[in-house]
């Protein structure tokens, strides 16, 4: 059973909403902010004001997919998020920490639940289908995607899958402190964003096909290498692979990504998506959307290349990601 990406939408330091979108480059060295589209084009105006950014990014992505695909009846709605509605959570926590006995506004509490994004999509489109939210660190999005692939196997069509996270003042502050106190090969600029996908089991010419998704934890580098070798052998990746997209940054490729590169042919193109997304629990949703763009021949203007691929339109792409050296994942995609 194959799973195809019928349509995708992404918001990161780049987005897929306009035709000439500039990269949102911040002078700050510790975080990368999302380049948000004009929300009023995608979300009812009366609702925008009340929604937090992570909800707006998610709704904008699902609306764009609806506009592009013409489909608004979903087989299931499945969202992954690492920190959920962290800005509203912080707002409510601050109220509680300051004075628990004062009159507390319930609004940020109501909007703080992790399933707000999936719930709001269901509410806006009146979708009663299965609705799930995964919050599992660097595998939050992968859990949602795997569930989507399971629903396709069970015979559903048009399954909406997404990953989204937002930056908050406290996340930024603590991350900055962490970067200063514990320099490590895995620490990157912290980021935010959303990537949403409409999955189908119906083959459509030219659409990106998800051949495999593997999520795993490792016990040391040898165990990691063994697991990679098995995956490479299973899919015969010594030939035919055009590009590997790493959840890394150009100048500071982490040790696990280095091991992967050592196992693949030197002529393969190598790109680094966290160069533009930054690090967050669901950054791989941005990575998948970027890979989908490249496989669809849309190209990408920004310099993410360690080794620019020979073909301008790759046919087979491997994504490898980890979160702070844990929560490893491999995606094999083709057209």
């Amino acid at each position: 059973m194959s799973v195809y990406i019928k349509s995708s939408a992404v918001i990161s330091s780049f987005n897929s909403f306009g035709s000439d979108v500039e990269l949102n480059e911040s002078a700050d060295t510790s975080f990368i902010q999302a380049n948000e589209p004009p929300y009023s084009d995608y979300i009812p105006r009366n609702l925008i004001r009340r929604m937090s950014r992570v909800v707006k990014m998610s709704i904008a992505c699902s609306s764009k997919i609806k506009n592009d695909s013409g489909i608004s009846d979903y087989g299931a709605i499945l969202v992954g998020t690492g920190l959920g509605c962290v800005v509203d959570s912080e707002k409510f926590l601050i109220q509680v920490s300051e004075d628990e006995t004062s009159v507390l506004s319930p609004t940020p509490f109501i909007q703080s639940t992790h399933n707000t994004m999936a719930g709001q999509i269901a509410l806006l489109e009146t979708q009663h289908c299965e609705n799930m939210t995964y919050s599992n660190r660097g595998h939050s999005f992968e859990n949602a995607l795997m569930d989507g692939m399971m629903y396709i196997k069970e015979g559903r069509d048009n399954v909406l899958v997404g990953g989204s996270d937002e930056l908050s003042p406290i996340v930024k502050e603590l991350h900055q402190k962490l970067c200063l106190s514990k320099p490590s090969a895995f620490l990157k600029k912290v980021g935010e964003g959303a990537g949403f996908f409409l999955l189908s089991g119906v083959a459509e010419k030219g659409k990106t096909r998800i051949e495999d998704l593997l999520t795993f934890e490792v016990n040391g580098k040898d165990d990691f290498k063994n697991k990679l070798e098995k995956f490479i052998l299973k899919h015969d990746l010594h030939s035919g692979l055009d590009l590997v997209l790493l959840g890394a940054v150009k100048g500071k490729i982490d040790p696990f990504s280095q091991i992967l590169l050592s196992l693949l042919s030197d002529s393969i193109g190598v790109g680094t998506f966290k160069e533009v997304s930054g690090e967050f629990h669901t950054a791989s949703a941005v990575g998948l959307a970027l890979a989908d763009k490249l496989l669809q021949g849309e190209g990408f203007d920004h310099d993410i290349w360690v080794n620019r691929p020979e073909k301008t339109r790759p046919k087979k792409v491997l994504i490898y990601n980890n979160y702070l050296g844990h929560n490893h994942s491999l995606y094999l995609l083709s057209v």
Binding site: H114, R137, T215
Partner: peptide, 23 residues
């Protein structure tokens, strides 16, 4: 939300597929 699942999974040696749901 992923923290408790991974800490418990590691402690009890549950090394198969792992996930955390928050609905």
């Amino acid at each position: 939300c992923g923290d408790s699942g991974h800490a418990l999974g590691n402690h009890f040696g549950l090394n198969g597929f792992r996930s955390t749901i928050s609905t």
